[in-house]
């Protein structure tokens, strides 16, 4: 991963960092910013209801979903084969709450150890408002949530893992099936296969992971996960390739500013990774405008 210039700590990033790959029409479908924090066991449904009161104008709808298991990036050992879960509690687990507005692009999710903001593309021609805008909203929501926790004496928000996910939907013009032309999309896949033996290539799931280092650290602090998978666009049942890139890492400290500083670095890593795992031909189709190929 190219090194990034050091950014002064705790300085809010208001604009796009220089040198980041940039596209006129990126195939972005969804952006997810997540902060995992030390579990707040006293934060349960009734308290979440109180919090909702303050955001109900923006998010009039609330629904419950199973909580997402905690995730911690560790190193030095082989990958675990089974994801650990702890769920045998005498009381039902506090759900993950979705705060949403029908048809709106923004979604806020809260559970006992996570706060998540999703931006979702809702219409074909909807313009992605860019990370800075999504971040600004998320920062305001985290600040409000943190203030609420203190006011209700529920604990302190102490981030321990931060995550940025970009989900892209890649299609081809004129009805060409991108799933069978994966080598035109990513250099991670080569189609040098013997069709006489294997038959015609139909599709593939390509997963890769990379170590993530922040601009402050020599040792890795997290990972970047890349996932190409075949999918179908619901609106028109067109075959597409879904590219999901996630960076997850441990922040330098346990403050909210530490969390956002890491989110900024993770976003840069996701965007650079996106450019690195897609081909120059695709960049041209998406209107790459930072002058690099």
């Amino acid at each position: 991963m190219p090194s990034t210039p050091a950014v002064p700590r705790n300085v809010p990033r208001a604009s796009r960092p220089p040198g980041l790959p940039d596209f006129t029409s990126p195939p972005i479908e969804e952006v997810v910013l997540s902060i995992q924090f030390a579990s707040l066991t006293r934060l349960r449904g009734p308290q979440i209801g109180l919090f909702w009161k303050g955001i109900r104008t923006k998010y009039p709808d609330v629904t419950e979903h199973p909580p997402i298991p905690a995730a911690f990036e560790t190193f030095g050992t082989p990958p675990a084969q089974v994801l650990p879960t702890i769920q045998f509690l005498p009381t039902p687990p506090t759900p993950r709450f979705w705060f949403d507005k029908s048809g709106g692009p923004d979604l806020l999710q809260i559970q006992q150890d996570r706060i998540i903001h999703n931006w979702r593309k809702r219409e074909k021609d909807q313009i992605y408002p860019r990370y800075e805008s999504v971040r600004r909203q998320f920062k305001s929501e985290v600040a409000m949530f943190s203030k609420f926790l203190v006011a209700e004496q529920l604990g302190e928000l102490r981030p321990n893992q931060c995550e940025v996910t970009y989900i892209n939907t890649i299609d081809f013009p004129e009805g060409l099936d991108p799933q069978s032309r994966l080598e035109e999309i990513t250099p991670l896949w080569s189609s040098r296969l013997d069709a006489d033996i294997l038959g015609e290539f139909e599709n593939a799931l390509v997963q890769a992971q990379f170590l993530f280092r922040s601009s402050h650290d020599v040792e890795p602090i997290g990972r970047i996960y890349v996932n190409f998978q075949p999918a179908v666009r619901q609106a028109d049942l067109t075959p597409v390739v879904r590219l999901e890139i996630t960076t997850r890492a441990k922040p330098r400290g346990e403050t909210i500013d530490d969390g956002f500083e890491l989110l900024d670095e993770e976003r840069s890593a996701v965007v650079r990774t996106f450019a690195a795992v897609t081909t120059p031909d695709m960049h041209e189709a998406w209107g790459r405008k930072d002058g690099r190929r």
Partner: peptide
Amino acid sequence: ANVAATAAPTSNASATLARA
């Protein structure tokens, strides 16, 4: 969760994972 996001992307418009 070891290889993919756990941040619960909602995938509103596009994908079904059935084929995956």
